[in-house]
């Protein structure tokens, strides 16, 4: 009964994990018969390669942006949606729509939203605000990518936070209200600290998403301009499939994987444990 699953996962997931490790020690081009052994050569090259260092920095900034945007928007909207009122289900569904939209469709639309003749700049000009070239400048392109990713995962974070909000004890709030705490104080002193385990989870999800991110980058910016949005996932693809550097691409992939694992373990040790065990 287990055999078909074990074969598929074994051949197409477990073997490739090891296989990528092996490839990262070769200078294979992706099609030759010979896979030339280069030892740790690819790894020592990595840390002198401006493209990799740029990609690492871009990924860290992107991850930080996605996490901050995800926590603030997810938590904020979940607090607004928490409670029983008319139209709550409709709002929840609306915020969830981007999650089920394909990344390619979403990025295709957003490219026109951000474009220099796009809707966003039209709105900004109407408000007499500066209308920058969102996708033409490397740092603004990264901001655009963060905004798109935040929009795309908003519904997921809202639903996760809503679930956590519903488990919070009502008597703590009653006691706080009796002691004269304002709504804002209750939010800051009770809700946010009690939601910490869920915040850890949302942060880890955000980091993993941004390290993996490929589709959105591919369809919004193609990694550009000037590598401004080239995440590690995208760099792996570009090295392996566009430049035929399979060995080097494998080393990029493995290094990024080590970073994701490291961050996950640190987060887990720091206190996300309750959430993970449940």
């Amino acid at each position: 009964m287990l055999a078909p699953t074990l074969v598929v996962i074994g051949v197409f997931v477990v073997y490739p994990i090891v296989g990528t490790g092996y490839l990262s020690l070769t200078s294979w081009d992706g099609f030759s018969e010979i896979k030339k052994w280069v030892g740790l050569g690819n790894y020592t090259r990595l840390f002198r390669d401006p493209a990799f260092l740029n990609s690492l920095w871009v990924t860290v900034l992107y991850g930080a942006g996605v996490c901050v945007a995800g926590v603030v928007s997810g938590l904020g909207i979940a607090v607004l949606l928490n409670g029983a009122f008319r139209g709550r289900g409709v709002y929840r569904a609306v915020f969830f729509l981007p999650v089920v939209t394909s990344s390619i469709a979403a990025a295709t639309v957003w490219r026109y939203v951000f474009g220099d003749t796009g809707v966003l700049d039209a709105v900004l000009r109407f408000l007499h605000l500066p209308a920058p070239n969102w996708l033409g400048d490397p740092s603004l392109a990264l901001v655009s990518l963060v905004l798109l990713t935040a929009w795309k995962s908003l519904g997921l974070n809202v639903v996760l936070y809503l679930t956590a909000l519903q488990t919070l004890p009502a008597d703590v709030y009653e006691a706080a209200a009796v002691d004269g705490a304002s709504r804002w104080q209750q939010l800051r002193r009770i809700t946010v600290p009690l939601l910490a385990p869920m915040t850890f989870f949302v942060v880890i999800e955000g980091l993993i998403t941004s390290f993996q991110s490929f589709d959105l980058v591919y369809a919004l910016t193609g990694g550009g301009p000037l590598g401004g949005t080239e995440t590690l996932g995208f760099l792996t693809y570009r090295e392996a499939f566009r430049l035929s550097h399979f060995g080097y691409g494998a080393a990029v992939a493995y290094t990024a994987f080590a970073l994701v694992l490291g961050v996950t373990l640190i987060q887990w040790r720091l206190g996300g444990r309750e959430r993970w065990s449940s």
């Binding site: 996962i9 490739p16 994990i17 390290f211 590690l232 992939a253 990024a256 994987f257 694992l261």
Partner: peptide, 17 residues
């Protein structure tokens, strides 16, 4: 544990296969 592995870690050998 395989759920924690990002897709780009497995695609190169999987593609080769």
């Amino acid at each position: 544990a395989t759920m924690l592995v990002p897709q780009f870690v497995t695609v190169l050998p999987a593609y080769d296969l």
